[in-house]
Design a binder for these strands. Sequence first.
DNA 1: CCTTTTTTAGATGGTAGATTCTAGAATCAA
DNA 2: TTGATTCTAGAATCTACCATCTAAAAAAGG
Lengths: 192, 192
Amino acid sequence: MGRPGKFTEDRILDTAMAITAEEGPAAATMAAIAGRLGAPTGSLYHRFASRDLLMAALWLRGVRRFQHGVIEALAAGDVEAAALHTPRWCRDHLAEAATVLLHRRELVARWPGELAGQLEGVNTGLAAALDACAARLPGVGRERLLFAVVDLPYGAVRRHLMAGQPPPPLVDELVARACRAVLDPVPEVRGG
Amino acid sequence: MGRPGKFTEDRILDTAMAITAEEGPAAATMAAIAGRLGAPTGSLYHRFASRDLLMAALWLRGVRRFQHGVIEALAAGDVEAAALHTPRWCRDHLAEAATVLLHRRELVARWPGELAGQLEGVNTGLAAALDACAARLPGVGRERLLFAVVDLPYGAVRRHLMAGQPPPPLVDELVARACRAVLDPVPEVRGG
DNA sequence: CCTTTTTTAGATGGTAGATTCTAGAATCAA
DNA sequence: TTGATTCTAGAATCTACCATCTAAAAAAGG
């Protein structure tokens, strides 16, 4: 079988994630990752053909873990739970949340062609859950649901992630209220 | 008086903004800006001592223009108008909105010390308007107002800016509804 | 026309970081 | 033990870009 690896892909990604969460993705150079991990740069290139590939893998791993809860809640038809998953997950996985939610564009400025399929899979996974849920809710369009489940919670946690802090409890109340208001079928007419 | 300038600061910033909006801030290298403007790099450095300074100036100019409307609405005590200013301004200034709202971190990764005062001014300007408005609204804390006026609209437009599209009309309805719901003093009790 | 000031002009230097390359070490199977 | 295989190791290379530097051009004033 040959010599067993000393630095696993996951450990490399964890190190890149720590640097990214602390100092931003630009600070996660190959040398910085290798240095913090105590590995030579060559070992990194043994696992990942390029830095782009490494960063894309980092983002993919995080986004999959994150999306899992959202998709689950949507499948159960609980839109509010899906919306609240974001602030809750941020509390439990602060560094990974910062990496995935804050640094998407910088992380994967040039998406490697090799991973086009993986990206597609991630996108369609959420899209399918969203469509299935929207189909069950009369009067709630896809765009409206997307706002309630993705955009709104994202806006609510962003500032706190940027400060390196977990979102405070108030955020959950704000998200829940706004979510209900947006999905409410007859909001303008009193007593409807 | 000496030879009049051929490339003004504003034209340089406009060019940098165009590149940033189209291909991201990383693509806005000094050579790229100069090339698109038809100027040599030397002319850029005549106006801006460094790339960091140029990008910081770009962000400052944009954020000032953007904030103006928000602060005005807050001074008038109209929270909903303040929240709606974001999607409206994005429609009218698509490229600048993308630059200011999407690329803050990448644009000014290292904020130049020379501009510390300017940054401070921008931050306190909004903060003051926010505090003054919050003081007038009983039961509405500063954090809640910040969410309604900043976080919520930001989340609502982000996806559209990333796609290079102006936010659709639906966004205004979503923002307005969510804004009202969040500021509503007694949302839980029916008929309150 | 001549001087002064300001700007253009672009070649050149310097540096940070990604990537490659060659050597050698660790493990497994026979 | 030996050979095949997989990995570590880190120095060397390559590339892209920021920043500098010298020279010259273009006004404005006298």
